[in-house]
């Protein structure tokens, strides 16, 4: 099966006149099973993801999805290839898990929206994949933060995309729930969707990602396997010098912890 890739070519984007801009000379997304985009606040992580999802249109350059140019495609045909999960916003109404998962079938359905057997199978499989089958009739307000996130991922899974773009799927979750969401994504079957996700949590990203893209001030600072990206030098460049890079006790991938005191002070004391 051939993979549909997203290809950025000389992309630039800006929101306004405050000088901030995102500039990506060349980038290909979708080759690896899990790609994590990390970087400090304002580095352009979410903007990059929205550009890839076709929700923002670049000011210059071109984004291709497979052979087609992204801006020329209808939302529907994009949605058949790419699943997009935005940052969590409070919904206007308290929908049930089942209804949200069903919404994922929209790009595959006819105008009337009656469910076919294929639809029902996809919904059922998606609910099982996130282990929410028992909770499918619960409204969102009756779920915990982690369960809610799983329900949203079920909606994207039901869409059966080849590529999933997830914006902060672990934000504001407790560490065990955040890890559970990452394990769930890592557990997608081999022929399941490739995942590109944005996260603040460098350590979780390093633990689960096949490829790590580090953004800094709208530029790609590093791109590669976690062990190559998370180096003391790069962390100092992007996050400042008050961090330590150590190996994960179990898997050996690099992880980042904060120093107790500022590095300069420490130097003065000794």
């Amino acid at each position: 099966m051939t993979r549909t890739l997203i290809h950025f070519n000389r992309i630039c984007f800006t929101y306004g006149e405050n000088g901030w801009n995102l500039s990506i000379p060349e980038l290909e997304l979708g080759n690896e099973r899990i790609t994590c985009i990390v970087g400090p606040n304002g580095s352009g992580k979410s903007t990059l993801l929205r550009l890839a999802a076709g929700i923002l249109t670049p000011l210059g350059g071109s984004i291709r999805l497979g052979d087609a140019l992204l801006p020329g495609m209808s939302r529907r045909s994009i949605a058949r290839c790419i699943g997009f999960l935005p940052q969590e916003t409070p919904p206007l109404f308290d929908y049930t898990v089942k209804m949200i998962t069903t919404m994922g079938r929209y790009p595959h359905s006819s105008w009337v929206g009656t469910l076919t057997d294929t639809d029902r199978q996809a919904i059922c499989a998606a609910l099982n994949a996130v282990d929410m089958h028992e909770l499918q009739n619960r409204p969102l307000s009756h779920l915990s933060g982690g369960e809610r996130r799983r329900a949203m991922i079920a909606a994207v899974l039901a869409q059966q995309p080849q590529l999933m773009l997830l914006d902060e799927p672990t934000a504001s979750l407790d560490i065990h729930h955040a890890a559970a969401v990452m394990r769930l994504i890592a557990g997608f079957e081999n022929n399941g969707p490739r995942v590109v996700l944005v996260t603040h949590d460098i350590n979780l990203a390093a633990l689960f990602a096949d490829r790590l893209i580090m953004l800094h001030a709208g530029r790609i600072a590093a791109d590669g396997p976690p062990a190559e990206v998370i180096t003391p030098e790069l962390m100092e460049q992007t996050y400042g010098e008050d961090l330590l890079v150590r190996a994960h006790p179990e898997s050996g991938v690099p992880m980042v912890v904060a120093r107790r005191a500022e590095k300069r002070q420490e130097g003065n004391q000794s």
């Binding site: 929205r50 999802a53 929700i55 209808s74 939302r75 529907r76 045909s77 994009i78 949605a79 058949r80 790419i82 699943g83 997009f84 999960l85 935005p86 940052q87 916003t89 919904p91 206007l92 109404f93 929908y95 949200i100 919404m103 994922g104 929209y106 790009p107 949203m152 909606a155 994207v156 869409q159 773009l165």
Partner: peptide, 13 residues
């Protein structure tokens, strides 16, 4: 009603 960006992601114009 659920989410404007999610609607875009689901293919709603």
């Amino acid at each position: 009603a659920f989410s404007e960006e999610m609607a875009l992601g689901h293919g709603v114009d």
